[in-house]
Structures are given as structure tokens and as C-alpha cells.
Computed example of a mutant assay.
Amino acid sequence: MQAPHPHATTHATAERPHPAGVLKRRWPTALAVVVVALNVLASGSEDVADAVGGFGETLPLLPLIYLVVHQIGKPQATWPVLGAGLVAVFALPLQDVVAPSRVLVALALVLLAWGAVRGTPHGRATFGAQAVGALVFCGLALGGLAVDPDLGRHLLAAGWFFHGVWDFVHLRLGKVVSRTFAEWCGVIDVLVAVQLLFLV
């Protein structure tokens, strides 16, 4: 009887990485799935208008984070910027004067003007791409909030989905924002788009 090859077990282990190792590498994806699952559970039987309002008011935060980090010029600032943005998203609805989405869009426009006048750390080409992204995603957010909720959810689903594509492109390029954020945000964006289309 032939003895097993001494490296057989090693090869099998190398071909099938340990689940803990996969989770360690893909923690942004795991965290994104947990965040969206908790949101789905918390929203329960949320109606279309409420879902459109919530996701529409939040969508402009996504390109705004990119603009802020782009102007800072340090990808490692991405997670702190996200934290500040989430505080703003939760705090802004406490006032009834201006819709949160309009405040976020106004901040994005200020950053675009600042970049156009003062220059940017990543150069004009990257800044131009960020500007186009900000205008498209903020436009979809405002458009989704302005129309009938059933049409609005489709516009917002498009905005969230294509921002997910935007994240994955940045993940591949490794530019502007941190790679862990790009992965986390990309998964969340795509799942939110699915939620808007099928779970609301």
C-alpha cells in the first residue's frame, strides 16, 4: 500500500483557507452585511415613502465623503470622515429648517468650488472624476426625493447601486479612499439598492 504524499494535507489546507482567515481579510464585507441586515430588521414594514426619504437624505453623504478625503489627500482619514458624516446625518434631522440632503449637497458644492480654486492633492483628472460623481449621485438623491416615491425608489436604487460600482472601481485602483472603506461601502451600497427594489 502506497503511503500518502507528505504534502497532500498541506496542499488541501492551502487550497481551502481557514474561515477565520477569510473573515479577517474580508471583514469590511462581513461588517457591511451585518449593518444592512440590522437595518432591514429595524425598518420592519417600512413604507415606500419612508424608505425613499431615509435613503434619499443619506445618499449625498457618499460622494461627500469622497470629496472630503480627496481634498485632505490622505486615505487613512476615510473612516474618521465617515464617523463625522454619520454624526451629521443623525444630527441634521433634529432641525426642521433645511433638509439634511440639501445641507450635504451644499457642502459638496463648497468642496467642489474649493478644489477648483485651490487645487487638489490628486491632480485635476482625479478631481474632475470626483466632481462628476458628486454631481451625478447628489442629482439622483435630490431627484429621488422630489418625485413620486415609487419612481423615487428606482432613482435612489440606481444611485446606491452605481455608487457601489464607484466604490469597487476605487477599491481596484486603490486611490482616494481607503481600500477597506471602498469594500465596505461598495457592499452596503449594492445591498441597499436591492433593499429599495425588492424589500420595500
Rank of each mutant, 00 (worst) to 15 (best):
Val33Lys: 00
Glu15Met: 11
His163Arg: 06
Val105Ser: 01
Val110Pro: 09
Ala32Gln: 04
Gly159Ile: 01
Val34Pro: 06
Thr58Tyr: 15
Lys74Ser: 09
Val89Arg: 15
Val36Gln: 03
Ala146Gln: 04
Gln2Asp: 15
Lys74Phe: 02
Val22Asn: 06
Gly144Ser: 02
Val177Leu: 02
Asp96Ala: 14
Gly152Ser: 05
Gly164Asn: 10
Leu23Trp: 10
Val103Asp: 04
Thr78Tyr: 01
Pro93Asp: 06
Val48Gln: 06
Thr13Trp: 13
Pro17Thr: 03
Thr58Gly: 12
Leu104Gly: 01
Val103Gly: 09
Asp148Gly: 04
Ala99Asp: 14
Val98Pro: 08
Pro75Thr: 03
Leu59Pro: 05
Val200Thr: 11
Cys138Asn: 14
Leu171His: 05
Leu111Pro: 12
Ala14Ile: 00
Trp184Lys: 07
Leu112Arg: 09
Leu199Lys: 01
Ala8Glu: 12
Leu94Pro: 04
Trp184Ala: 12
Val105Pro: 10
Val35His: 07
Ala30Arg: 01
His70Cys: 05
Ala113Ser: 11
Pro75Met: 00
Ala131Glu: 02
Trp184Asn: 02
Ala113Thr: 02
Pro93Met: 07
Pro93Ala: 07
Ser43Val: 08
Leu173Gly: 03
Ala77Thr: 08
Phe181Cys: 01
Val147Cys: 02
Tyr66Glu: 02
Asn39Pro: 00
Leu82Phe: 04
Arg118Asn: 12
Asp47His: 02
Glu57Thr: 13
Leu31Trp: 13
Leu23Thr: 10
Lys74Gln: 12
Trp184Gln: 07
